[in-house]
Every structure is written in C-alpha cells, then in structure tokens.
Simulated assay, not measured.
Amino acid sequence: MTELGDSRNITAKGRAAVSNAVGRFEPYARVAVDDGWDAPDVGVLRTQVAEEVPRSVISRNTSPDVPFDRSVNPYRGCEHGCIYCFARPGHAWLGMSPGQDFESRLIARPTAPKVLEAELRKKGYRADVLAIGTYTDPYQPIEKTYGIMREILEVLRDFHHPVSIVTKGSLIERDIDILRDLAADNLVRVGVSVTTLDPKISRLMEPRVPSPKRRLQVIERLAQAGIPVTVSASPLIPALTDHELEAILTSAADAGATAATSIMLRLPSEVAPLFEEWVNIHFPDRAKRILGRIRELHGGALYEAKFGTRMTGQGIWAQQMKQRLTIARTRLGLDGLRVPLRRDLFKVPPRKGDQLCLF
C-alpha cells in the first residue's frame, strides 16, 4: 500500500490515479528510491473510511456560472476514483494526496442529516434548490454501508425542500420511493453522468463507477418511476470521448431522459498532472493530441479558472461542441423548457411532542 505523500507510480487494481504525491500545502514530500531490495507494491489499495462530525453541512457559493447557491456533501473523497474529478484538490486541504488518497482515504459524515435538519429549522431560512453530487458522488460505494444520502433525502421530503442530484451510481435506485414522492410535487431533478459508451475507456478512467450500460438502465428506471432525468455527457474529453456526444444523448433519450447537458474537461490544480500522467500511460498513441487540444481550449494551459469559459473552453473547437450539443438536444427532444423546481412548498415540520396548531 502506498504511504501518504509517496510519489511512486504504482498501478493499483481498481484505482485510476497511479501516483500519490502530497498536496500543495504540505511542507515535505516522501520520495521513494528503488535500491533493488524491496519488491514493488502491487495488488489492491484498500479503502479506508474516517468519520467527521460537521458543525454545518450547507455550503454556499456565489459563482456566476454555477446554477445553484447551496449544496451538501455527505462524503469527502470519492471511491469512484474518476481520474478527471475536479474535486480531487479538496483532499489537499485535509493533508492528504489528491492522487490515490482521494479515492481510497474517504471521510463520511454520518450526522449530516441531523445537522441539515437543524439548519433548515433556523429562523429566516429561505428554501432554494439544494445541489447534491456536484462535488463528490453521494451514491459512491460506501453509501451502501452508511446510508447518509437516504437520510438526507428523508429530511428534504419532510421539509418539502427542492433538491437537484447528480450521480454516476446505480445505488440511487434504492431511493426511488423517496424520489418519487419528491417528484410528485416537482421537488427533485436527477442528473446521471454518462462520460462514454465504451466500457473499456470507462473502466480505465472511472474504475469503480457502474458501466455505461448500467447507467443508462438507471436513467430508464428513474424515468419509469416519474422522476425527471437529465443526462450529463460530462466531462467531454477532447480526442478521446468528444466524438461520442450525439451517441450518448441518443442512448439517454431512448432510455427516457428529458434534458441534456455537457461540460468540458476541467483540470484544476493537482488534477492536471494526474490526468497527464494517466493519459500518457493508457493512451500513449494519442496523448499528445489529447493534451494539445485541451491546451487549445484554455489559452495554451491545461486549465484556466475563468468564470464563463472554465466549463466550456474557448476557441473554434469549443464553439463547435456547443453547436453540436444544441443541435443534438433539439433533434432528440432534450431541450424542452424545464419547469423550475418548486420553492413555495417548503414548510418546517413539527418535532415530535410539539404542540400542533388547531387552525
């Protein structure tokens, strides 16, 4: 098993990152030197889970290019291990590596549902769409053990609070009963991310995510239950998955999706070297082309954190992708007017033992 800050390139089964360099805030790094005596680390990198007791769980943002102002994260780190995940740099704030630590050293927040309820009960709270899954996936494998996301949904249902969910996990099917109740009052929208239809590419870049076929089944089952589903063809990776845009949207429309979005690959902070390392190992024949196209999108760099273009890129190729998305959505009926989720139904439910009003 790799140690914290170990910079060796070690391909671990079921993991996308092949290194574990320390985060940008650490003063020291541990560098391994092969002296010929020790056998290289091989095999399985086990998942470790620590627990956190948060004082608050609603995170606020004022980003002008993000369509929500509040979110909740049941977990830190993500066992799905997507190599392109823009949340990886967050592990550096915890003193861990955005590399293999991010996908194997996780933090669960079991008391998050109770803390959320307390925040929703605060005098003066005004309901708006709460986004879940925009940072790390709430339906990653450890959710099966902890069930934090289901408890959060129960709280939101009790308060009639609008929620938007993004996931790649098939475990969301477990919560169809709650989601159906929310959907009946137009309080929920689910986005399912489908990055590629190629199972081999998917396994390499998102090793613990359900297969593309399985994610399309998730869309179908949610749609059949009356839950509105948006397919997110995100992130699109230049010269690797961008040619699949229309095929992904077509498959999702056939499965019952009613809307579609797409975001360009983002490589902030430590994600850029991790992705560059990964693409050179797994796709050496096209790595130069992939990385070159990414740089075209961001003014010569692998990433530019500029509002308005950070999720789309800029230049001719970015414009072409935007046009392709618009045309495909129109052709497939995935660009229909979205009815805004309701905010007016929000109501603080009485606690057990509270005196109820007679009128």
Rank of each mutant, 00 (worst) to 15 (best):
L197K: 05
F68D: 03
L356H: 02
Y28E: 12
I142M: 15
P235R: 12
L187H: 08
I58G: 01
R24K: 11
H160W: 03
F307N: 10
R331L: 12
A50D: 14
A32Q: 11
R286D: 04
R46D: 13
Y303R: 02
R88W: 05
D158S: 11
E52D: 15
A127M: 08
L4V: 05
E244D: 02
E246G: 07
C357H: 13
D181F: 02
L197F: 01
R295G: 02
A16K: 00
V166F: 02
I316T: 15
R289N: 03
I290S: 06
M149W: 04
C78R: 13
K288W: 12
E51M: 10
G169H: 00
R215V: 08
Y84M: 06
K168S: 07
G300N: 09
A253I: 07
E154K: 15
L341Q: 08
P98I: 00
I294L: 09
K352I: 14
A225M: 07
G333Y: 08
I327L: 15
V348C: 06
P89R: 06
I248M: 03
S262L: 01
Q320C: 06
F159Q: 00
G81Q: 10
A272T: 00
G353F: 09
P110S: 03
D335I: 10
S56H: 11
P273G: 02
F86Q: 07
V229Q: 04
D344N: 11
P40I: 07
T47D: 12
Y135R: 14
P89K: 04
D69W: 03
V190M: 01
G169Y: 04
E276A: 13
F307W: 14
K168F: 05
I107D: 07
T136H: 02
I316L: 15
V66E: 01
V218N: 06
Y75Q: 10
A32R: 15
I201M: 06
P64T: 03
R8N: 08
L240W: 10
T111I: 13
E220Q: 14
P27W: 02
A29V: 15
P340K: 08
Q314P: 15
R180T: 11
H243M: 09
P207T: 04
N61Q: 11
L358D: 14
T145M: 10
G169P: 00
E103V: 07
E3R: 15
A223Y: 04
E220T: 06
G5K: 03
P199R: 06
V229E: 00
K352A: 14
P350E: 04
V57Q: 05
L245E: 01
N73C: 13
L116D: 11
L106E: 02
N186W: 10
T62R: 15
